[in-house]
């Protein structure tokens, strides 16, 4: 008499318990594959960024020196040497004025859209979406038509054009950040007998501060690199360093553009150095803004 071994029927409970184990191998493979794909995509993105930065830096650094940061371009673009100091001053000044115009307006519009709502807010929101889609050369042409034809080319006209470019970006990013502030914080403040206006300025905006500053810096970086609207407004001025914004001014972006299309080796070298300077200014501004936006607690007093 031999023992016969009969396999016990698999119960439903065993099936359930075993089910995840059966797929364990497949899930491991999927997990590893997906992790690999995501890592590859990330490396590709960072690599492109580093390539651009490295390429600009490797060429730009050859020509970037104290002379470049302190002198204006030589009278003859074919000559070597000289620098973009007028463009650096012009860029910082024009973008600074544009920021001073766009940030208060943009933040006010975002507060209107998110905190107050209503018909006007919906219109502002809609127009913002339209404005963000306007090509910047059109913005430049618009400022040319209504301003430059009356008062001539000037840094101020350039700043207005750049402010129009920055405005929708500031409104959109600020509005997004304000929406992230929990409604409970607003209610907590109102429940203490604080007015709505004070709640917005003292609770909502400080809570959203970090995100708002990041959005503003993105708009600043965008404005720093804009060339098209400045061609029709600030025009450029490579003869001397101009600091008066009511006169035509040069900016780094204009000088990079102008030098790059000349065909002279020396001018193109200055364009590379200018490109590197532009990246450096944006980077420094972003880092400074990040440090400034670090959350600090107002003292007890």
């Amino acid at each position: 008499m031999t023992d016969t071994i009969v396999a016990a029927p698999i119960t439903r409970r065993q099936q359930i318990v075993q089910a995840p184990i059966r797929h364990r191998g497949r899930r491991r493979v999927v997990d590893a594959t997906m992790t690999g794909i995501l890592a590859a995509v990330m490396i590709a993105c960072v690599a492109v960024l580093l390539w651009v930065l490295g390429y600009v830096a490797s060429i730009g650094l050859q020509f970037l020196g104290p002379e470049f940061l302190t002198q204006t371009p030589p009278g003859n673009p074919a000559d070597a040497g000289g620098g973009f100091v007028n463009g650096i001053i012009g860029s910082v000044e024009i973008v600074g004025i544009a920021t001073a115009i766009a940030v208060p307006l943009g933040m006010s519009a975002a507060v209107l859209i998110v905190e107050y709502g209503g018909r006007l807010a919906r219109w502002v929101s809609f127009l913002t979406d339209v404005l963000v889609g306007v090509p910047t050369i059109v913005t430049g042409a618009f400022v040319y038509a209504i301003w430059v034809t009356q008062f001539g080319f000037s840094g101020l006209a350039g700043a207005v054009a750049l402010a129009l470019v920055m405005l929708p970006l500031v409104i959109r990013s600020t509005a997004e950040m304000l929406r992230l502030v929990p409604a409970e914080l607003r209610e907590a403040s109102l429940a203490l007998g604080v007015t709505k206006a004070r709640t917005i300025t003292s609770i909502v905006l400080p809570t959203a501060r970090t995100g708002v500053i990041t959005g503003v810096m993105l708009a600043v970086a965008r404005a720093m690199g804009e060339t098209a609207p400045l061609l029709l407004t600030a025009l450029g001025n490579d003869l001397f360093t101009e600091v008066n914004p009511t006169h035509r001014m040069s900016t780094l972006s204009l000088q990079i553009f102008g030098s790059a299309i000349t065909g002279y080796k020396a001018a193109q070298a200055r364009a590379w150095a200018g490109a590197l300077t532009l990246i450096a200014i944006v980077l420094i501004a972003t880092i400074v803004a990040r440090l400034a936006s670090r959350r600090t607690f107002t003292s007890g007093r």
């Binding site: 929990p182 409970e184 914080l185 209610e187 907590a188 403040s189 429940a191 203490l192 609770i203 400080p206 809570t207 501060r209 959350r295 607690f297 107002t298 003292s299 007890g300």
Partner: peptide, 14 residues
């Protein structure tokens, strides 16, 4: 005064 369901201290304040 009002106290809410979830604690909601102001995050930017001490």
């Amino acid at each position: 005064g009002m106290v809410f369901q979830r604690p909601n201290p102001f995050p930017t304040m001490s």
